[in-house]
Amino acid sequence: MRFDPAPADPFALTGRRVHEAEGRGRRAFALFQAVRHQGPLVWIQPRHAPEIPMLRGLPRGVGERLHLLRPAGETDLLWCLEETLRAAPIGLVIAEPEKPLSLTVGRRLQLAAETGRTTGLLLIRQGAGSPATETRWQCEPEAGERRDTTLHRWSLNKNKKGTTGSWILDWPGATAAFHMVTAARERCEPADAAR
């Protein structure tokens, strides 16, 4: 098996595939991906989910393209997910299944994404990943030195076609722009002009 070198943009999700994000920062990762994908966006949540995306808190350009589906149960959620992945004009499908997906269900979703030429992102509970997904991201908020910053640690723990890694980035949430942050004590300080 040949592995591709690390891409210039480590956060680019492979198109026509289904990916997973877990951890406390998984919804921030989903919004980051929503900003980066063109076209209509679909977010599928169980009807009883206590938190839903609020239009006023979304990054610029996402609210106008977002369609929120709230099916009654897990079976309906998986049906909505598969059918939405098959719909060709959709840019990104985000779904929040409550139970781990079997290999068979995961494979069906991959085939649906290929058919519809759509990218899928499953926001899963910790340890509930499917063996059929292309990548799995661990997403956690990261403490920063400044209070006015939004730091995230996004770790690529599973990648069927490439490398894995972990990154800390500063993403304010308004646009697709972000800044990579180096690990503590590895920051480049400007030279002292007085010397």
Rank of each mutant, 00 (worst) to 15 (best):
W171Y: 05
P50G: 05
R65Q: 14
F3E: 13
E96W: 00
L92I: 15
A34K: 06
P89G: 14
P97C: 04
W137N: 10
L111F: 05
F11S: 15
I90F: 03
P7R: 03
D192H: 09
T84C: 11
K160V: 00
R65E: 15
A113H: 10
D148K: 02
D76V: 01
P172R: 13
S130K: 14
R16Y: 05
A34Y: 07
D76R: 00
T175Y: 02
E22M: 01
E74H: 06
R70W: 01
K158R: 14
R65D: 15
P53Q: 12
S166Y: 07
E96S: 15
L13F: 02
F11A: 13
L109W: 08
G173M: 11
P89R: 12
T75K: 09
A132N: 01
E51V: 04
R65S: 15
T119N: 09
A28D: 09
G144A: 09
E98N: 12
R195E: 12
V62K: 00
E140D: 12
V62H: 02
Q45W: 06
D170I: 05
E142L: 07
P40W: 12
I90G: 03
A34P: 13
L85W: 07
R27A: 14
G173T: 14
L111D: 12
L122F: 05
T133P: 00
T150G: 08
I44C: 14
E22S: 03
P53S: 13
R60H: 02
W137S: 05
M54G: 10
G120S: 10
L101T: 06
E22C: 04
T84Q: 15
L111H: 10
D9Y: 03
I44M: 15
A191P: 10
L66E: 13
R24E: 14
R36Q: 09
N157E: 14
C80F: 06
V35P: 02
G162L: 04
E142A: 04
L85E: 14
E134V: 01
L103S: 08
L68H: 08
L58I: 10
G15E: 14
E64V: 10
T163G: 08
E96T: 15
G120Y: 00
I90L: 10
T104Q: 14
Q110T: 07
S166N: 13
G165E: 12
